[in-house]
Design a protein around this nucleic acid. Structure first.
Lengths: 344, 344
DNA sequence: CTGAAAGCGCTAACAG
DNA sequence: CTGTTAGCGCTTTCAG
């Protein structure tokens, strides 16, 4: 047995020859279609088994009128990110129910790469795609969509029309977080955000502003730090904030890794029990830290299920108007967001 | 624009007609093959662009002599698990370099499901598969392998021959962990493991036994708890252990979620600074807990890269003898594993 | 350098 | 109930 595996795969013709029927009859049996006598069915099945026959879906879908590949594409930012992988899993679960497989790729939030992957998916004639759009213009996505490919965007909405999307309550939940901090008496609440090109970052920032305004607080621009891509940049930014003459007494970290970066600095300075912290996006073990980290938790499986539901409905021909589904997030109070401002 | 996208896709024939050449010439141009005059190339490219032509890889691979689908299958236990998703990402990165896409699925450690997914992958004629074998017999895997499908197992070795695999130093690293605990003076070291059907669990248990033996400690069977699938079961088991008349002074938790479960109980009882803990598998934020959690860290990207390397070599016809690559894990000391036994 | 004919494995559309 | 013919979109083979 060699790994290359050179011997020819048996085809329907081989099965037909052995069972002494036509290929059409084999096709019927293999696909479980009616119109084949029991005896013939048994004969064909036996022949298929002895030959080790395996249907070739790519050949089948090429010829079939519906042209389905029973495969969808999933294009997220980074499949090793917990948010993305939980989303993938939710989509996969739903896909499996329909015998559909998932081609998965990471775009790294890079438009060029995303475009290439989209072309690769398209070349394989996937039935639809679920995409976490890379920041900036979405020309490639729009083009693919306009070619007729069913598409659902997740996490971030399309900048073009006619396309479904599923997002969470970025703005409302951010406002809620800020209002909770303000209610505790915080007046100097910092905002630490991911790249500004990301729609989610913008929404969360807007929610922050709304929260401040609603609480009657004035925005201190030096308390706003954005474009923090990764925990390292977040650490630097947090350090700078704490070194201000009038440092913030509470932090709203608008993304996962930013939260982690800020936490590290707070702990390193022994401030984790004095400076309040609310993060957007939950993460494993957030409840086991001291204090537990208060977060805005997205319903990731819910988002994934909804996205899958939408894409399969579209694939099945649903032509109702495009939907923008918003799956609610919830504030999970664990301690870090319930710290009152410390007296000087 | 409707989501169903009904209009017919342009084919090579359409491009050929518009460019006034034969389909063969279009094929040459699209695939960048030599033997086409510059002027013709330009004409074909222009025609393809105006029609919005996209090559159909499934049709192409059906006809081509190498029969490659430029797609591989990845069948892990749970794609939403950090270990699995990090592995997927590593494989994906390597695949991308060769223009290969990844069909990903979760087997949930269920043989039947794994078998179905394997058939689905096979029906799509993937060029190879990277599999985390479900526990128990591996008949389906073996069968697929014997059909000639290039295959690499990760995390767990095959129970059949002729197949590559990539694992980590389960036994050696477990022994090292136990020896470190013994060196601190611990004599009652508990073992908490995942399902015994898993090869990794068995190996880690063997390493535990070797560690005890090498340290001159006798095995206390009531300190061994296995089949702890999930954090909840681990919590129960940890509670039971701590309630023993002579409870363990150190825990070796042989899997991710088991570690988390044990940690929860230790914290709940205020024992996290008194009972030593070493876990197998790192997890995010393990360094931010109090104390930091000492773990055996696998080189997950390294495992993924190696698996990808092997599968692509086999796909490219490498017929050298099967390899069992072992990627070293490392003990990461963070505090919890450096706690000495507390005086009564 | 270019093209015509054949056919990859399968299913649609019709006959019988 | 079963078979025949044609052809999905592409590449191979071989002939110009």
């Amino acid at each position: 047995m060699d790994q290359a595996g050179a011997r020819r795969e048996p085809t329907m013709r081989d099965v037909a020859a052995l069972a002494k029927v036509s290929t059409k009859t084999v096709s019927r049996v293999i696909n479980g279609l009616p119109g084949a006598g029991q005896e013939v069915v048994d004969r064909v099945r036996a022949a298929a088994r002895t030959l080790g026959y395996r249907p070739n879906l790519t050949a089948s879908s090429l010829r079939r009128s519906d042209r389905r590949s029973a495969t969808i594409g999933v294009l997220f930012e980074d499949l090793s990110n917990p948010f993305d992988s939980a989303l993938l899993r939710a989509v996969e679960d739903r896909a499996r129910q329909g015998g559909v497989l998932v081609l998965a790729g990471s775009s790294e939030d890079d438009r060029a790469l995303q475009g290439e992957l989209l072309i690769s998916l398209s070349a394989r004639r996937v039935d639809g795609v679920v995409v976490m759009a890379a920041g900036g213009h979405q020309d490639a996505l729009q083009q693919e969509r306009e070619r007729g490919t069913p598409m659902v965007l997740v996490d971030r909405p399309p900048t073009f029309g006619g396309t479904d999307c599923v997002t969470t309550t970025n703005r409302d939940s951010s406002r809620e977080a800020v209002l909770q901090l303000a209610a505790l008496g915080h007046r100097d609440i910092a905002f630490l955000g991911d790249r500004r090109t990301l729609w989610t970052s913008q929404e969360r920032y807007t929610g922050y502003l709304e929260g401040l305004a609603q609480a009657g607080l004035t925005l201190r621009e030096e308390l706003v730090r954005t474009d923090l891509h990764g925990a390292d940049l977040a650490e630097t930014a947090t350090t700078a904030l704490l070194d201000l003459d009038r440092p913030p007494t509470a932090l709203f970290t608008a993304q996962n890794l930013v939260t982690v970066g800020s936490m590290r600095v707070l702990r390193a300075r022994g401030l984790h029990h004095r400076v309040a912290l609310i993060g957007f996006d939950d993460f494993p073990l957030a409840d086991m830290l001291e204090p537990g980290i208060t977060v805005v938790r997205q319903d990731v499986p819910g988002i994934g299920r909804k996205a899958a539901e939408l894409i399969f409905a579209r694939i099945d021909g649903d032509t109702s108007p495009p939907v923008h589904a918003v799956v609610p997030a919830a504030l999970v109070r664990r301690g870090s967001g319930e710290i009152a401002p410390s007296a000087h």
